[in-house]
Amino acid sequence: MIKIENLSKSFGTVEAVKDVSFVVNDGEILGFLGPNGAGKTTTIRTITSYLAPTKGNVYINDLNVNDNPDEIRKQIGYLAEHNPLYDEMVVYDFLEFVANIRQIPAVDFKARLKDVTELCGLKKVIYRPIKELSKGFRQRVGLAQAIIHDPKILILDEPTTGLDPNQIVEIRGLIKALGKEKTVIISSHILQEIQATADRTIIINNGEIVADGTVEELMSSFKGHTMLELELKNANKEDIHNLTSINEDIKIDSVLENKNNIISKLEYPNNIDPREEIFNYALGKNWKILEMTRHKVSLEDIFRTLTVEGGENND
């Protein structure tokens, strides 16, 4: 079990993670979701003891990570963000190097190597220098490196960034397969990724956890809401926000400018239906409504709603 307790981490004046607490249960695949600069990598780095917490603690099976880094690292397989690898090394040498540091006995190495090369589909490239590999194969080497010691815990920081759609599907399948017997934390800023792989999702924004639950739980907490998409002509961005004056329960989720038109997404509880008022309001302002579509809340909408502030002013 991984337990994160009131974790805070600051870099100078930047508070990257603020008082975050959560638990990852054994055998669970946890999706760690958040926009750029949300604090995913920072949190993960305190789990792998690359960084020490400014405040709070991280425990793995009741062992404090900061006090027992070596013991903890033995139990973890880690694929860091951007998948750093020794480019000039041949895949085989690299995996042997990792196995040596992991103190896998030479007699077991052959068997482990065989397992991971099969699992990660590395057979074809095993004697190639890493720098010659395509991004997808690099990623597989990164995964192979992370699982060669058959760790109980697997931590993957944005494992599919930069892959083409086919590769993404493959790597996701691989992660799901690995997750059957391991505790996995997988971070991403892509919702579909988490939806496709994780049992439970934690959404982090501006260093704070804004949602924690299964996809169903997240959906149901938003079930009482309706999303309304508007496309308007002659409107301006600032004016859109005045729509909340119709009913204070209306929330503006996003306003985009597309050529001369404004596309905006609103959200309101199911017990009200402000469409008529919106129509009249638009008429009064001389806006031309090109489109008004109502739809059910999707996970995408939830993510956007939860992370709409602040996510974009970082990085």
Binding site: R45, T48, S49, Y50, D70, R73, K74, I76, Y78, A80, H82, P84, L85, Y86, D87, V98, I101, R102, Q103, Q145
Partner: peptide
């Protein structure tokens, strides 16, 4: 510079 230091220092090695 390459980021491999993160890889190395998160291995069970001092």
């Amino acid at each position: 510079n390459d980021g491999t230091l993160e890889f190395l220092t998160t291995m069970p090695i001092s």
